[in-house]
Design a protein around this nucleic acid. Structure first.
Lengths: 215, 215
DNA sequence: TGTACATCAGTGAACGCGCGTTCACTGATGTAC
DNA sequence: TGTACATCAGTGAACGCGCGTTCACTGATGTAC
């Protein structure tokens, strides 16, 4: 009788006692859980399970659950910044830059809804946006500001700053609204979700109290 | 020896076995917990505790925890609609209506942050905004749409609809951004939080791709 | 007006669950000599 | 090159906890006659 595959690991199923890069694996596992099961399922134990490791193992890499969440959120902000940068590249003209960034932002949120929620989740709260969102470090926030400055030459700094914040608010709001069912007829009428997104963003001026701020 | 206050309840501390309106009391208790301890603390048991009732009592009024949350969220939407209506009343001129509603919206979210989160969490779970947000029932959504129609006479229906959604997105985004610490210097510079809110909302047009949609 | 009885709205104990975290441990790795 | 030993990164069992929910119950209320 041929014995089943020996217990001593073959090269193929070798799972060394030491993982190699468990930290990385845990963050990846967390993202997998987020997207497959939502933020409610994201427990430390679930992450360990997903990474095929004991419940205590993560503690060699993260002080506690909060620190893991922090790392996941940090990667999320990086990824969002990358997505916005990639969107910017697609803009044909300078005038298109803002909407290209906006569309990239909203699509990122749509495609990574649970991650996006973790990023903004205040329960770990510091009442602070991450480094990528600071006003002075060439992060995503500055990318938007630069695009706005280019689009509105001659605007004063305060106006550009406020418009940047307004843009971020609008994109965030749209990102959270996009998936509500009641907009589906409108999306269909406009020819798809991206058209809907652009249409909403283009109508912001109609809502604003003053069409040309700073005048 | 004078016996201590009789076990048989005096009029003052009469707590009848039957509560009278436990459903109401549970919803109020939930709101108290939300604002004092945040959404994370909102368990059915905590609500029962807060209402000074056994953990099983709520089941005579709500099928399960979800149904209680639903009731809390429903009241939240009503309260938000009321706040927006009250804001509308304060608008001196027709032109001010939109910003009056917007300010009222954002202030409601600022003053009831945990309730506000529950409202949108429940909606997101169902992929549906509540009745107050439907496009055809004289709710809060329609209030915004009417104000926009009045402000932009002659606009076609689609433009008004899209601008309404844009306004809602902007207000929601600002509501969630408002309390981040990094905006504090800006608020101070502008002379306070309300000035900041108005300034951000007024700058939306600068972000929009097209200043006058529909042209 | 009294009384029997059904119904309603509570109680309190118990259930099983998954959670975050700790602990003593052990296997694997790296380093000093 | 070989060996002793410190350190690192895992294991697996256990802790106490609060949770949602169920259950048999009981006190209070309302109704029929």
């Amino acid at each position: 009788m041929v014995p089943p595959m020996s217990e001593t690991a073959t090269v193929a199923d070798a799972r060394p006692y030491h993982h190699g890069d468990l930290r990385r694996a845990l963050i990846d596992a967390a993202r997998r859980i987020l997207e497959n099961e939502g933020p409610g399922a994201l427990s430390l134990r679930a992450v360990a399970r997903e990474a095929k490791v004991s419940p205590a193992a993560p503690y060699h890499h993260f002080k506690d659950k909060g620190e893991l969440l922090e790392a996941v959120a940090h990667e999320g902000w990086d990824a969002l910044g990358d997505a916005m940068g990639a969107g910017l590249e697609t803009a044909a003209t300078e005038r298109d830059r803002m909407s290209a960034i906006g569309v990239a932002y909203v699509e990122f949120a749509r495609d990574n809804p649970a991650l996006y929620r973790v990023m903004y989740d205040r329960s770990r709260d510091k009442d602070e946006l991450p480094e990528q969102m600071q006003m002075d470090n060439d992060g995503a926030y500055c990318m938007v500001r630069d695009a706005l400055r280019a689009k509105n030459p001659g605007s004063n700094d305060m106006d550009v700053e406020l418009a940047t914040i307004a843009a971020w608010c609008a994109a965030h709001g749209l990102a959270e609204m996009l998936s509500f069912k009641q907009f589906e007829p409108l999306k269909a009428e406009l020819g798809g979700e991206e058209a809907f997104m652009r249409a909403v963003l283009e109508h912001l001026g109609m809502f604003a109290k003053v069409a040309s701020p700073g005048t």
